[in-house]
């Protein structure tokens, strides 16, 4: 069909491998943090919160202790407000603890331009001055960074071009199974 948009979907991580990846990320976190007394997890709205939930649950089970979990919305801190075609809708922030002097692990599903993480660093400061901040992402999209930001923990590296999209499907979001897709948009 002429001028029609053809979507090509390629599976880059299936349910089995995704589970192994998330387990590896948890083990890596334990290796670096040992005890989570001074560590808190902040999932970034809207899509990072589901991954944060999964990691939080697995970690609590593995280390047998309670770990603080919060959700951070970056909408009001974005640098593209009034510069986008349509504004981003705000989501709830739930950080019922102070992060002063804590080690914060920011969790998001995909790291792309790095601008959401920059906004998150800004948003986070409203809850105190953390001792250290780390970034955990499931998918690290290489070659698209617009800011000097890189993840401390990453599930997989994906080589992408700007017209491609990475789609993370998690059961917690209502999908049938956990999968990660690479979508090509060809016009």
């Amino acid at each position: 069909m002429q001028n029609a948009q053809v979507m090509q979907k390629r599976l880059i991580l299936d349910t089995f491998l995704l589970d192994i990846t998330v387990n590896r990320l948890c083990q890596h976190l334990i290796e670096n943090h040992r005890t989570f007394d001074e560590t808190v997890i902040l999932g970034l709205q809207p899509r990072g919160i589901h991954l944060a939930d999964i990691i939080h649950k697995k970690l609590e089970k593995l280390v047998h202790q309670k770990i603080e979990l919060g959700y951070l919305d970056t909408t009001f801190y974005r640098d593209d407000f009034r510069r986008r075609d349509s504004p981003v809708k705000a989501n709830a922030t739930k950080v019922p603890f102070i992060i002063e002097d804590k080690c914060v692990i920011l969790v998001d599903d995909v790291l792309f331009t790095g601008r959401s993480v920059r906004a998150a660093l800004d948003a986070m400061i409203a809850f105190g001055r953390p001792r250290q901040v780390e970034l955990l992402v499931l998918v690290n999209r290489k070659y698209n960074r617009e800011l000097p930001i890189s993840p401390d923990y990453k599930g997989i590296d994906v080589n992408t071009i700007e017209s491609q999209r990475v789609l993370v499907e998690l059961e917690a979001q209502g999908f049938e199974s956990n999968k990660i897709w690479l979508i090509n948009k060809e016009v």
Binding site: F76, Y77, A90, A92, T93, K94, D122, I125, A126, F127
Partner: peptide
Amino acid sequence: ETAENFKEVINRPIKKVPSLRD
């Protein structure tokens, strides 16, 4: 919906967001 989010903002230790800085 937006006001609900701002209500959470104005109850934080730091009650300011940079949205309309320009």
